[in-house]
Amino acid sequence: MEMIEVRDVQFRYDEEEGSSAVVLDGIHMTVRKGEFVALLGHNGCGKSTLAKHFNAMLLPLGGAVLVKDMNTTDERHKYDIRSTVGMVLQNPDNQLVSTIVEEDVAFGPENLGVEPAVIRTRVDEALKAVGMYDYRDHAAHKLSGGQKQRVAIAGVLAMQPECIVLDEPTAMLDPRGRREVMDTVCRLNREQGITIVLITHYMEEAVLADRVLVMDDGKVVREGTPRQVFSQVEQLRALELDVPQPTELCHVLQQEGITLPDGVLTIEECAEALLQQLEGYHGGH
């Protein structure tokens, strides 16, 4: 049983002018349990729309989305699906409901009708998991962007989800907030085995994933490990996407005739490859 299974999904928004553009055009994809998947694509390629299909916020016009074999169109499973697949949105300010941190984290389980004593333990655990336990009685609006986003993640965690979908969670954060959020996400994936679907514009974040999906024009056009996907620099450029900076550096050097391995992803790998190349150069002379 897959965590999320998307079968030939079609979707378009109804526009008032009568003309409606197809947003999702026959999407096929799966997210396996415990996996960390990054979803890439330029603006307007339909990735946020796809994300909203994962937790029944939007329902497909054609095809089907299954979350642990529950069809999202089945009204009876709506809240099971939403508590299984939690969602964190881009703007940290617009997803916190309560003034106090711990009350906001309690919002999800309160909606699910969980016993008060159980909510208390879940809230404490969730806040500890994102490293915000010391801020539990602070005012939410006084936190930094990264802290707010971690509270938002805790709010989802308190519903005890098996999968968290994050829709550009770092887009409005400074580099430090970005690192805080990504560290938290990676730790939840590694230590608690929570399935992660990360939608992002930052290639350095996509590199951390087990698998990368690239979307264009309502379709999944590339799929593979970060190494497989990012080694095809020209193809990504054609899709209006960047590649991680180390990958780009190696690519440019390769074009200049210097032999370097394909699919270099991190700064460390890049440095290693360059070092070997330099040593080889000296050794040859």
Binding site: R82, N94, V97, F107, E110, P116, M159
Partner: peptide, 17 residues
């Protein structure tokens, strides 16, 4: 965001405090 966190009005809602 509220809908994503299963908000569906006061029906069947509990309170932590």
């Amino acid at each position: 965001a509220m809908e994503c966190r299963c908000y569906h009005g006061g029906e069947g809602r509990t309170r932590m405090k």
